[in-house]
Design a protein around this nucleic acid. Structure first.
Lengths: 238, 238
DNA sequence: TTCCGTCTTTGCGGGCGGACAAAGAACCGG
DNA sequence: CCGGTTCTTTGTCCGCCCGCAAAGACGGAA
């Protein structure tokens, strides 16, 4: 039973589509067992090392999943958009969340307790299958980032990171593609393994060349092709 | 039906334990549907970008999974030991293998075609559950490495990488813990995101201090505690 | 409007670690 | 035993990028 009775945009319910080809009864059952969570910008769905007691699907908004080192250094693991799962660790054996999920815009999420989602998955095998696909995709994505971190210099990494943001959250606007949530230079640094200073310098140089248009927590890619050239073609060695 | 009829050490069959609590009939069924693959040192179970048509469990030996960049730069994604799955992508929706699996010692593996493992997983849900746990663990592991790459300097990364090797494949010998498969300086470099030169220098310095004992493709940790100190305590910042 | 906090830009110096080079050491096969 | 190959060590140089510092924009609140 949803914990908030307020009427919601029915489109929000589409989020359960992430479970794959559930029959209508299955969707209703899943929805009935879920609870809603509204997350204001900056609010956290869960925190690193906290007991992994719930699994979520984002309905609307955007979250960032971060990890923090003992030294206090923060990195961004990934961004979560609508119809994406998060807190998957609750369904695959982990005891605590490995990271923190923070809303970067006002968001709505559907949540299930670990026990509930376990039962649902037993009744509807498609859920587990879909979760596995998601995990597989994320593993490959993370491996790609690892490979980039190990083999590429900062400028290429920043280009790859921004290309990923464009693919995930790009919105066509006049004269380019805008990342449609607030993203600071610091965020990009934590995403690409560098410092906000180097990000700022690099983006300024790109702006000079007309590749991007910069704003406060705002980034528009004017020339996506140039971005790809930087990400792929820059002769690093060989 | 195993494709090689030669008599095998029955202990090799224990590899199916990786599927979790299968009843004896389930194990027999899984074994009957499997095929054996013997992999000589240097031989490849599959290659990057090849169609992901099979899923494996390693019975004996050790493999490394690598990725190669368009520029020809190679990195090591992970090592696979006995009773570990590999080629998981074949069971979670991927079309091609994201990396190459190469035997670093003579090895034996049990293999199932994508179709076969799919059917087995449908009959025995424990298989899918276990695969998901494995994927979850690997995702977290990869995220940890990503975090290390983004926040730590070379010496700490090398320490973390070697600590991981010790945990995974360390064998107690007189006066230390030996990594029980051949590992070159180049391998460690590809594992930690640096060059073999820097690895060589770093390890030489450690040997000077009595932390490790070096040999050709051989590494013995004499003082595991010191290794942990380097991995965790080195004041990098703050 | 003014203040204030947050985000961003820019300059400068230094050091980590990569690139290049060459020699030494271990292993292998004939 | 010897030549060839692979792996490792060590030296030198230099450039990318980080760390530090300070000033500049931008936006929100009163």
């Amino acid at each position: 039973m949803p914990t908030q009775e307020k009427q919601l945009d029915p489109a929000l319910l589409d989020a359960v589509d992430v479970f794959g080809n559930l029959d209508p009864a299955g969707k209703d059952e899943a929805l009935a067992a879920a609870h809603w969570r509204k997350l204001e910008t900056g609010e956290r769905a869960f925190e690193q090392d906290q007991e992994a007691d719930a699994f979520y699907v984002l309905s609307a908004g955007r979250l960032k999943v971060t990890q923090i080192t003992p030294e206090g250094q923060e990195i961004i693991i990934r961004y979560i958009g609508p119809k994406e799962m998060f807190g998957c660790v609750a369904v695959c054996g982990g005891l605590t969340y490995p990271g923190t999920a923070t809303a970067v815009t006002d968001s709505w999420a559907l949540g299930w307790t670990r026990a509930t989602i376990g039962e649902l998955a037993q009744t509807y095998p498609g859920i587990a299958l879909n979760a596995m696909r998601t995990m597989g995709g994320r593993l490959q994505d993370t491996q790609s980032r690892l490979r980039e971190m190990q083999t590429e210099r900062v400028e290429r990494r920043i280009a790859h990171g921004i290309a990923r943001l464009v693919a995930q959250a790009g919105r066509r606007v006049e004269g380019g593609i805008l990342i449609d949530f607030p993203v600071s230079r610091q965020d990009i640094a934590e995403l690409t393994g560098t410092t906000l200073h180097t990000v700022s310098r690099t983006l300024s140089a790109w702006q000079e060349r007309g590749v991007v248009e910069l704003g406060r927590q705002k980034l528009t890619v004017r020339d996506p092709h140039a971005l790809v050239v930087i990400a792929e073609d820059l002769p690093l060695k060989e």
